[in-house]
């Protein structure tokens, strides 16, 4: 666990080195405020988990922060630069990449192609270059990097298979590898453990920790399984009805009355 943590555990507390700050972001569906975050900071180089009962607005918050949905108000910054009104692909290029709750592997691309797609600045992605050449060198270095990522995630054997033929857990791994290929500063994982068999869960956890410890990435992730949350989080943020109701180190949040009330008060049925 990295050193100095903010001792302040009030919702919306400031952090020593915030990479992501959110101010007054809200989004209404019908009359309901699905997301309504007054202030939130995410500290660089930590694993922050986002918890909360079903319908608390966790995925919607992810969508808003990464440009996949537009808020009705508020602003948020990545490394000091505003992300308001920035298209989703631009958010990724600026260093914040997300994965999806339901894995979106590109089924009829091979595993290797999936990972290569993540590479930034490939000149061959311009139509003119694609026709007239001048991208082979970059592709070679990208491929090398892709090989090492596939190796790291144990997908080397599968690299020429269609991604659609992978198992659910392998797809989660692939999605993570693909996101890393973008080389982001912040990586946002939407329920990376959902639907994965228990044997692979440990493997995935190990990979998430490695993102922080070996690559110095900031990880924000949504997770339902409290054991997993307690195991790997440096910091936990609890959402309920769209708002941050509690945040702090895992042991703090797990004993917070408001968190327990939120979970008991909701009619949640699954902890999948």
């Amino acid at each position: 666990m990295p050193a100095d943590f903010a001792a302040d555990t009030a919702p919306g507390s400031t952090k020593p080195d915030a990479v992501l700050t959110v101010d007054g972001v809200f989004r209404k569906f019908g009359g309901l405020r699905a997301v309504d975050v007054a202030h939130l900071e995410v500290q660089r180089g930590t694993i922050t988990s986002l918890i909360g009962p079903n319908g608390a607005g966790k995925t919607t918050l992810f969508n808003l922060l990464t440009g996949f949905d537009k808020p009705d108000g508020g602003e948020w910054h990545l490394d000091g630069g505003t992300l308001v009104g920035i298209a989703s692909y631009q958010v990724a290029r600026r260093g914040m990449v997300r994965t999806f709750q339901l894995t979106k592997s590109l089924a009829r691309l091979t595993v290797l192609e999936n990972v290569l797609l993540g590479a930034p600045d490939q000149p061959g992605e311009r139509l003119s270059r694609a026709l007239f050449g001048g991208w082979a060198a970059k592709e070679a270095t990208n491929t090398e990097k892709a090989f090492s990522l596939l190796d790291q995630f144990g997908l080397t054997d599968k690299r020429d298979d269609y991604a659609g033929s992978l198992s659910g857990g392998q797809r989660k791994l692939l999605e993570m590898a693909r996101a890393l290929m973008v080389d982001p500063a912040v990586i946002m994982l939407d329920e990376p453990m959902a639907g994965v068999n228990p044997a692979l869960t440990q493997d995935l956890l190990h990979h998430v920790k490695a993102l922080r410890d070996e690559q110095g990435k900031t990880v924000v992730f949504i997770e339902h399984d409290m054991d997993v949350v307690m195991d790997i989080s440096d910091w936990v943020v609890c959402l309920a009805e769209g708002a941050v109701i509690s945040e702090g180190p895992p042991e703090h949040v797990s004993t917070d009355e408001r968190v327990i009330d939120a979970y008991l008060g909701s009619t949640h049925g699954d902890h999948a």
Partner: peptide, 11 residues
Amino acid sequence: EDEDATASLGK
């Protein structure tokens, strides 16, 4: 295959 996934990778 998937527009959202492609956008999430900066395309």
